[in-house]
Every structure is written in C-alpha cells, then in structure tokens.
Amino acid sequence: MLQPIDILNLFLPILYASVFAAYIYDFFTEKKFVNNSKRIILFVTLILHALYLISRTIEFDHPPITSKFEIFSIIAFSIGFSYFILELLTDIRGTGAFIILFSLGFQIVSSLFIEHNYTVPEVLRNRLLGLHVVNALLGYSGITISAVYGLLFILLYKNLKANKFGLVFNRLPSLEILEKLSFYSAVIGFILLTIAIIIGTIWLPSAFPNFSYLDPKLIGTFFVWIVYGIGILRKLFGNLYGKKVIFFSLTGFAIAIISLIITSTLGKTFHSFY
C-alpha cells in the first residue's frame, strides 16, 4: 500500500493548489463555470485526502497523529472539510480561497517532510488519544476559519469606511454575514476544543501519572478556551457586535498560535510525543 500512499502524498498539494487556484480565479473573475466546478474539485480533493489518511492508518497501524507532519496533513484536511461543510450550509462561495490557502500551506509542509513511521510509542495508539486529537484539530480548524472570516470582516469594514469599492467590496459577502460566519465557526471550534479538553483530562492521569496542570500547553489551551468562552458568552448574552466579536476571535487565534509556537519551541511539555 506504500506506493498509493506516496502517490497521494505527492498529489495532495497539487490538488489543494488546484482548489485554491479555482477559488482565487473565481474570486477575481466570477465565471459561472468555475463557480460551479470549484466545489466539485474541493470535494474530490477531500475524498482523496480522507483515503490517504485512512490508508496511512491501515498501513502503519496507528492514526496519523504521531508526527508534526502527519498532524499538519490532518489540519489541512479538517480546515478544508470544515470549510466545505460551511459552504454547503451557507452557500457563500466567495471566501474559499482565503481558507483553502491554509489547507494548501499545511499540506505542502506535510507532504515535503512526512516520513513512514511504523514504530511509535504505545501511548499514541490509544483510542481516547485519537478522539482527543481529532476533536482538538477540528476545534483549531474552527477557530482558524473564524479568524480568517474575522480578517475578511476587518478588510471589508476598512474598505467601506474608506469608500473603496473595489474587488473586496464586490466579492465579499456583507459584514453581517462575515461576522456570523466568524462567530459560528468560533462556536463550533470552541465546542470541539471543549470536548478535546474533557477527553484529555480523563485520559491524562492514566497515560501520564506525573503530568502537571501547570504544563505550558495546558495553560495555553486554557487561555484560548477562556478567551473564546468569554467572547461567545458576551455575544450571546451581552451587547457584542461587529468589530468587538471579531476582536475576540482574532485574540483567541493569536493566543492559540503563540501558545503553539512557545510549547513546540521553548517550553518543555509532556505534550511532545515525537
């Protein structure tokens, strides 16, 4: 099965590049043909990507979460998949290029550096860990998409304020829709992140008897969770509109990125399995 895995590994960046090209071309030209076919290209790419991830799981006898580059591939998939579902639900097709760009970036890095890993620590074969990782990655995809919509909101907001009526004005959906998309993505991301945290909390003591709740990764994740939690509650029960909603989304995302960088480079965490 190695050969198909290698072929898919080679083709996935090309497929994501094609999806990105279709979405960006449509963003600039709004051609009917591209508008309809880009979703099909994305769907095919996601199917092949799912096949690739399943093949890896079968071939190497563990879920593809044992290295950074396997995880990057899952992130690429979950961002693409989350966007696909969002597009199907809302039928807003003009923003895909900005989201798929992330999938493309993650998949390129993954495909370049991924290795065949038959031997992994036993802890990584645990099913609860698999669930924890899947929820966490989908959760992070949600907040990434939320942040992208947040940035698009800021972009359109500034264009409207400055009386610029170019491409951004013509192609992006309304501010209210961008705010909703950002908020709903954040809510979905928050829920999945919460599930990941709960599973992690249940699983941690049995897998790592000596872990500490002051672990930088746990603290970082907690901060991200708190920021999104406050933002969502204020939006639901308070008077949070427009830019302020986006502020919470972007702050949460920034903390998530900083936390990721610190824990994977500077801090010592039990969360590094590879």
């Binding site: 359109l156 409207l160 004005f169 959906p173 309304s174 501010l175 209210e176 829709i177 909703k180």
Partner: peptide
C-alpha cells in the same frame, strides 16, 4: 447596494 454590503 452599500447598505446590502453591511446588513445581510
């Protein structure tokens, strides 16, 4: 048209 770019 501008109004429609602000409110959905």
């Amino acid at each position: 048209q501008v109004v429609e770019k602000i409110f959905s």
